[in-house]
Design a protein around this nucleic acid. Structure first.
Length: 271
DNA sequence: AAGTGGACCTGCTAGC
DNA sequence: TGCTAGCAGGTCCACT
């Protein structure tokens, strides 16, 4: 579910309200992808600081460290003054004097990991090796071109891998490749410098546009206010197999790459 | 080193 | 109506 726009929309929807709050209790549900890494009670009494984002991870700063959060495929966060009783998919509650931050995640691919901020441990390991932020000025055609030269995987997979640039998941990788008119099956090393310029711009613009629209709500995404996103209504190729391409009216195709669905237009996305 | 496939887990939908 | 197979926004890890 959550790619960079959804994660950022989520962050923006509660960061200001939780900053400065004091943790009063913690409730954990079923296990998530990784163990919390500390006793829940160790979080109590700590004051919450800034909430920042790196790729699809959120970092919730606390006085003696912080929590690294990931929403996996089906996770969402809600921040509310008077939360209802925890349901069977509510696996983490950070109760504060300003409200409760709750992670709901049916599939439990998400995670909440404590880190003392030492630069080692699980959280550091997860963050190590992430590529550039798409809005980092260093992420440009030259950078993309240099990184792709060394790869033999399909360009779609290179975007998803997250070690060159972070943030684009299955929806936005498909959409960005459509905007750049590049065939998702094209081997990374074969992208010209000019096409890398186009693709870098397309990644940035696609993610920025989705962000402005509040992300995509395919089935259940909500920000921490419970608001749905609107980008999915504007997708050009994702989920549109068999429908006419908005640019050339050829039939949008669905293929499978690395066990993930890829949507593209065989008419205007070129090798 | 880089690429590939499997693994994790649950819910929903389409089709029989 | 009811069961089942297939699919879903992510990404780590073991193996080649």
């Amino acid at each position: 579910m959550p790619e960079l726009p959804e994660v950022e929309v989520t962050r923006l929807s509660f960061a200001q309200r939780i900053a400065g709050a004091q943790v009063t209790a913690v409730r954990v549900g079923k296990p998530l992808r990784w163990p919390l890494g500390c006793e829940p009670r160790e979080l109590v009494d700590q004051r919450v600081g800034d909430v920042s984002r790196r790729g699809k991870y959120l970092w919730l700063a606390l006085e003696r460290g912080g929590l690294l959060l990931h929403l996996g495929m089906s996770g969402s966060l809600a921040f509310s003054q008077s939360p209802v009783a925890a349901g069977s998919h509510d696996h983490f509650d950070l109760v504060t004097n300003r409200g409760t931050l709750r992670l709901t995640d049916p599939r439990r691919f998400g995670a909440v990991v404590w880190s003392a901020g030492s630069g080692s441990g699980m959280a550091a390991k997860l963050l190590a090796g992430l590529g550039l932020e798409p809005f980092d000025p260093r992420f440009d055609g030259a950078h993309l071109h240099a990184a792709l030269r060394r790869r033999r995987i399909a360009i779609k997979q290179a975007l998803l891998a997250g070690d060159i640039v972070v943030g684009a998941g299955n929806i936005y990788a498909c959409e960005a490749l459509f905007e750049a008119a590049i065939d998702p099956r094209l081997r990374s090393e074969r992208l010209s410098r000019a096409r890398c310029e186009r693709l870098a711009a397309a990644v940035r613009e696609t993610l920025a546009r989705a962000l402005a629209l509040g992300g995509s709500t395919l089935r259940d995404f909500r920000d921490a206010h419970g608001m749905a996103g609107e980008f999915q209504t504007q997708a050009r190729v994702y989920g549109r197999a068999g429908q006419p391409c908005v640019r050339c009216s050829a039939s949008v195709r669905r293929i499978v790459q690395a066990q993930r669905a890829t949507f593209f237009c065989p008419g205007c996305q070129r090798r």
